[in-house]
Design a protein around this nucleic acid. Structure first.
Lengths: 305, 305
DNA sequence: AGTTTAATGAAACATTTGTTGTGAAAATAG
DNA sequence: CTATTTTCACAACAAATGTTTCATTAAACT
């Protein structure tokens, strides 16, 4: 049991240690195997290659370069790991509250409880009512002249995430940032055809509340992403998406909010069809121009020893 | 995941239920499979037959007598039990349960698929390896002189969320914002006793990669929150927390990253004990001074439309 | 530049895989 | 006992598997 874990860890270690010296294709292979250990154990070499988008031969070559006789040996290590795993992980998450073995119990229990709560939040937040609200929100967003997104403090990540993703395929989305005390300035000209998407959870920041009040006064449609149908930012909203934010710690969880807003973007893109996809493609090109992303100059391939 | 366990349990149930009426050879087969579920998942049919000392054909016949099309279906159920990844079965079933009757089906299917993927990502990202990494990361964070948090573009929300929560109970956490092109300036004076927490997923922003390279050169400990053990920002890291970011749309999902970083904060607070709680309490008081939060002056009771 | 070296994709290889037939053996019934 | 059905081992099959080979491409070196 311990021994098997050791074999697996050793194999993994070999992949990581040698990674830098591998050829691009072999890196791709190694990387997929590191990221999907279960696939190694359960799939065949060929279907693994298919999943990793490489040639079967690349796997064999990888095995030899990290000093193994055959792929089968390698897979055996991964299979044994799976055998010794406490149980299915899914099952484990469920029963984690009751069972425990070895190591520090209290911390692992806390993490288990968090994981449980988070999945719970997710499932709740993707319930039928929320879905209906999301679809409704989509329609407002599509027909909006401009979209303003607001979220302060804890809700900021979710708001940012939404605006960031949206701007990849439409240019009429504004995130209220409020740098240097300019908050609210971006709202100038807000009108009847505009949409304000407000994200906020208790305790609600006064800024966000004010924005919704202002938006309502201007006749703009409000989409509220919040924790209650009667949240102050929801009372005047056209659409309210209620998110579960339960957490074992005293800090509320914004995970589900991020997830739902991501999903909202996905919905918008799906509806946008071909046009949206092209926009995204050109956005990517533009980013390449700015040299935004790191080019794999081959994770420094050390001079061969 | 619930459903997934259900598939396995169902198959097992079929074997047991039909057991009495089976022919001796088929009983032998069924018995072996009941006693060695792992073998079913990992071995081939032929080697399973060899291990059980029966003919391969007996297995096929057993499948048909318990009402299955093929052995491969059967094995799939067993494999999914072992897998971290709750399989397509689970997803389908979950969708069936939660579908809102009628309405547009394709959009609902998309949302269902997203929800499934997200919970999946969460469970993976709270797996045993990740938990170990999180605990290890905690120790580095606790002993750090200063903590620098970096995350650009898509990873920004997660980085922000972490830094924001941390600042509620410690004042030595700096988020690299890089307003007005000042990115990197905040790192001045980075040294051996400091910790850099870098969040980033493929495609990795060059800024984040550069920060980790700089940090490594300065001898600071790096905590990488990323999608692979061999991500460019992970290669020099002291701790790597691997997050699942699978998504049905082509945007990767940052949900799990946000969640894990939230959990990391919870862990830190749990370890910090009473002291941390007091810090938080005083932070809240301070916020009240600035009138940050909306005071419930009696939810304006509009005539509900 | 040209030459050597390494890396890659695709085809070919011998096994092994899951599955289906067939006829001998065993069990059951008349 | 024979007749009939069920059970089973074994051979046969196409499809898929793990591995090797080889020509072609890309990189490194002089």
């Amino acid at each position: 049991m311990r021994r098997n874990m050791g074999v697996y860890a050793d194999l993994r270690e070999r992949l990581i240690a040698g990674y830098g010296d591998l050829s691009p294709q072999l890196q791709k292979a190694a990387r997929y195997m590191l990221d999907h250990p279960d696939d190694v154990a359960l799939k065949s070499m060929r279907s693994l290659a298919r999943a990793a988008d490489i040639q079967p031969s690349a796997i064999v070559r990888l095995m030899k370069t990290i000093g193994l006789e055959s792929y089968q040996d390698f897979r055996l290590g991964y299979q044994n790991r799976l055998r010794d795993l406490p149980a299915s992980y899914a099952g484990r998450a469920w029963q984690l509250q009751h069972r425990s073995a070895g190591e520090d119990h209290s911390e692992d229990a806390l993490l288990g409880e968090i994981a449980r709560q988070e999945t719970d939040n997710l499932l709740r937040s993707f319930g039928p009512e929320a879905r209906r609200a999301m679809r409704s929100a989509c329609e407002y967003l599509e027909q909006a002249r401009r979209v303003f997104v607001v979220g302060r403090r804890g809700a900021w990540p979710a708001a940012f995430q939404f605006a960031y993703a949206c701007r990849l395929f439409r240019d009429d989305v504004t995130l209220l940032e409020g740098v240097a005390g300019t908050f609210g300035d971006e709202l100038r000209g807000l009108g009847r055809k505009d949409v304000v998407l407000a994200v906020g959870f208790a305790p609600y920041t006064s800024e966000t509340v004010k924005v919704t009040e202002f938006a309502a006064a201007q006749g703009a449609a409000i989409i509220a992403v919040t924790d209650s149908d009667v949240a102050p930012i929801a009372v005047q909203a056209a659409v309210t998406i209620v998110i579960a934010d339960g957490s074992p710690s005293f800090f509320q969880s914004f995970t589900a909010a991020v997830s739902v807003l991501q999903a909202l973007v996905a919905l918008l893109v799906a509806r946008g069809g071909e046009g949206a996809l092209q926009q995204i493609a050109s956005a990517e090109e533009q980013l390449a121009v700015f040299d935004t992303y790191w080019q794999d100059a081959g994770i420094k391939r050390n001079s061969r020893s």
